[in-house]
Nucleic acid binder design. Structure first.
Length: 106
DNA sequence: GTCGTGACTAGCC
DNA sequence: CGGCTAGCCACGA
C-alpha cells in the first residue's frame, strides 16, 4: 500500500537511517550513507533526500555535511536552521556550532 | 545502454 | 580559513 511513494531500496534505507536520529542531534550524509550500506554513496544520499518531498516526515533537517555545514534543504536552508534551533541545536549562519557534540554516530 | 545532474567528501594549494 | 579539483553513487531522460 501507499504506492504513492515509489522509493527505491536505497532510498528506503537512507530514510530509515535518518528517522533513527534522535531529536536535538544531527548526523552527516556520510554517516547515513554508511548506514545504508554504501559508505561512498553520500552523493546518492543527498539525492535521495532532495527528491524526497517528505521533509516533515523525515528529519532531513538533522542531516548536515561532514564539516558541520547544514548543506541544503528541499524547503529552504532557512527552514532547516529554524528547525534545528527549535530542537535545541546551536546553529550559526549556515553551520552547526557544537557540531561534534550533537553529532550522532550510528 | 549512455549521458548529465546533484542537499557530498577528501585532498591540495 | 577559503577556494578548486577529482572521485564516488543513484536516479531520470
Amino acid at each position: 500500500m501507499a504506492k504513492e511513494f515509489m522509493l527505491t531500496n536505497f532510498q528506503e534505507k537512507v530514510l530509515s537511517a535518518i528517522k533513527k536520529i534522535p531529536k536535538g542531534k544531527v548526523s552527516t550524509y556520510a554517516l547515513v550513507a554508511r548506514g545504508a550500506g554504501k559508505p561512498k554513496a553520500f552523493r546518492a544520499v543527498g539525492n535521495a533526500l532532495h527528491i524526497n518531498p517528505y521533509a516533515p516526515v523525515f528529519p532531513c533537517h538533522r542531516v548536515v555535511k561532514s564539516d558541520g555545514s547544514l548543506g541544503g534543504y528541499a524547503g529552504g536552508v532557512k527552514k532547516k536552521i529554524a528547525l534545528l534551533k527549535k530542537e535545541g541545536v546551536s546553529v550559526k549562519g549556515n553551520k552547526v556550532m557544537n557540531f561534534h557534540e550533537i553529532l550522532m554516530r550510528f
